[in-house]
């Protein structure tokens, strides 16, 4: 089981989009993939085709004492999705209190989340678990424990000034916590303006050893595909974004083969 955590240097860099498309790319390459949403915005299921009104997910199952994977759906491309979910009808005050209870329960299940329970779902040994960690830094989760169980943490960034500043801070923290499993993925890159090109060069120069050799380019098809409730693989299969995510999936699979 390959475990990937995907987080962003800040909000809005496209973590959920990356998770949805990477999961789909791997699935199209014949891999079994579980996409787990730890982000309370609960958008991963939507990007993978779940109905807007679907509220079941990780938090609803944990709240009723069921295993986290019991709210598992499957996308058209065959990705197993465990949405974050939300509890219907809660006020924001009681939502906060129940969130704290739920994340205490999730922490208790953390080992199972990325370890033994995955084996019990009966997936092939070369399956992939991709975790949408978007805003998980703000959650009371023992994310350092998750990091220890992960094979790789993908840190998504854009090529704007604020993201670049956050990226530098993130990798300083990485040195502070001593993990070498973090790699940087540039998302939504557009070479049409000088600042983005300069920041792109600076990231390449500074993080060359920890930078994915694949860059995901800015592509309007991504927004349009979401509005059509599809991924770019279905919506615009000849698009730049489709090629980029396909290549990213291929690179990861090739790395998996090398490590075996």
């Amino acid at each position: 089981m390959n475990v990937l955590l995907v987080a962003g240097v800040k909000g809005g860099v496209g973590v959920t989009t990356v998770v949805a498309h990477l999961a789909t790319a791997l699935s199209y390459q014949g891999k079994s993939v579980v996409a787990l949403d730890l982000c309370s915005a609960n958008q991963l299921g939507l990007l993978l085709g779940l109905p807007y009104g679907e509220h079941r997910g990780l938090v609803t199952q944990v709240a009723i004492g069921e295993p986290w994977y019991s709210a598992c759906f499957q996308s058209k491309a065959g990705v197993y999705i465990v949405p974050h979910g939300y509890i219907e009808g809660e006020s924001s005050k009681s939502k906060q209190a129940s969130s704290e209870r739920i994340y205490t329960a999730i922490n208790d299940q953390l080992d199972a989340l990325v370890g033994d329970d995955i084996e019990s779902i009966d997936l092939p040994f070369d399956s992939w678990l991709i975790v949408d960690f978007s805003s998980a830094y703000n959650l009371p989760l023992d994310w350092q424990k998750l990091l220890c169980r992960a094979d790789l943490m993908i840190m998504v960034t854009n090529t704007d000034a604020v993201s670049y500043s956050c990226l530098n801070r993130t990798f300083e923290d990485q040195q502070a916590i001593g993990t070498s499993k973090m790699m940087c993925l540039i998302n939504k890159y557009s070479s049409s303006n000088l600042l983005e090109r300069d920041i792109y060069d600076s990231i390449q120069h500074q993080f060359s050893k920890q930078l994915f050799p694949v860059t995901v380019h800015d592509d309007k098809n991504i927004g349009q595909s979401l509005a059509s409730k599809q991924t770019v693989f279905e919506y615009a299969q000849h698009s730049q974004a489709c090629r980029d995510f396909g290549l990213l999936g291929t690179w990861l699979v090739a790395g998996q083969c090398e490590n075996q």
Binding site: Y164, S165, D198, D201, S202, Q204
Partner: peptide, 20 residues
């Protein structure tokens, strides 16, 4: 080329200069 590009970029943008 990359080294020079980064030096030029730092000259253009105060934030990049500060981080560098």
């Amino acid at each position: 080329q990359l080294e020079k590009a980064c030096i030029d970029a730092a000259d253009r943008w105060a934030l990049l200069d500060e981080i560098s």
